[in-house]
């Protein structure tokens, strides 16, 4: 009884220390976890895998440094996947910091020998159109004219000077959209305008917090696939046979979850035991 009372009155700082330990120790002593990709993650992988070589894909980044630990591994995974398949990539963002983080993701990708040797060229194989304010209005405007919506790229180069953008008028010239979003404006706006209005197939990656809100779009096939949080990022890395922080962080994530589950179980048992004792 004393133990259970003690558990109910446990200093929350002890829980914080245990969670910190659960997160930090696996970073130093990594262990391998077998991945079992969810059907939602598999859906995104399959959709990109089916795209023919030379397709043009828009990758939009709606996230910031605060949510980068979850979204950045997805962005890096998507860039690797697209480059391996010879897909042309148009980067952009509806959040101001999105395109800058996309630039960092590109740097990470090009650090790897495989992608360095591909000798991919800016303007020909990929472009970064940067940030445009307006959220859903930007997507709607792109449906009419992408060059009018983005007259220049992120560095200020006129769009007509970029070979990749020649012949790109609107969503009719885009094969697929991949949206990586941490909130609003984000995936719902892309679904409403790019997919439902202009009929471009799309898939998305999002923070774990947003995932339950986006799952209904999977069932209605408005999204071909969905990467939810760090687990989604790890799934995608596993499917694309890449190494990254998604898989690397999974042991910490799993152990931390285990600690939380144990505390929830102990807390519930303690609650009922103490209540039963008090009734007597």
């Amino acid at each position: 009884m004393g133990f259970f009372r003690g558990m109910l009155n446990l200093d929350r700082r002890i829980i914080f220390i245990l969670i910190a330990g659960a997160v930090v120790v696996p970073l130093f002593i990594p262990f391998h976890l077998k991945m079992h990709p969810t059907p939602a993650s598999q859906g995104l992988y399959n959709a990109v895998e089916k795209l023919p070589e030379g397709s043009t894909v828009i990758i939009s980044g709606e996230y910031d440094p605060g949510t980068a630990p979850e979204i950045q591994p997805m962005m890096i995974g998507a860039l690797k996947h697209c480059f391996r398949k010879g897909i042309k990539v148009i980067l952009m963002g509806l959040w101001p910091q999105g395109p800058a983080l996309e630039g960092q993701a590109l740097q990470e990708v090009f650090k790897e020998k495989e992608f360095k040797e591909m000798n991919l060229q800016y303007g020909k194989d990929y472009v970064n159109l940067g940030y445009k304010a307006g959220g859903a209005v930007v997507i709607q405007s792109m449906g009419t004219s992408i060059p009018a919506t983005f007259p220049t790229d992120m560095a200020g180069t006129p769009i007509e000077k970029l070979p990749l953008m020649k012949g790109i008028r609107n969503f009719n010239d885009i094969t697929f959209v991949l949206d990586f979003s941490a909130g609003d404006p984000g995936t719902p706006a892309w679904v409403m305008f790019a997919h439902d209005r202009f009929h471009v197939p799309m898939a998305a990656g999002c923070t774990a917090v947003s995932a339950p809100m986006l799952y209904p779009y999977l069932q209605t096939k408005q999204l071909s696939g969905l990467l939810g949080g760090l687990k989604g990022a790890a799934d995608y890395e596993w499917l694309t046979k890449s190494s990254g922080t998604g898989i690397r962080y999974m042991p910490s994530q799993s152990i931390a979850h285990l600690v939380i589950v144990i505390f929830i179980i102990i807390g519930n048992i303690a609650f009922f035991v103490v209540r039963k004792g008090e009734k007597r």
Binding site: L27, P212, Y249
Partner: peptide, 26 residues
Amino acid sequence: VSFGASFGYTVMARISLLIGRMHFLF
């Protein structure tokens, strides 16, 4: 049950951010 699923995802998100910060520190 749907609230529980949302809570689980929220926990996952917050732990992910903590891992990111810890990785930065170490």
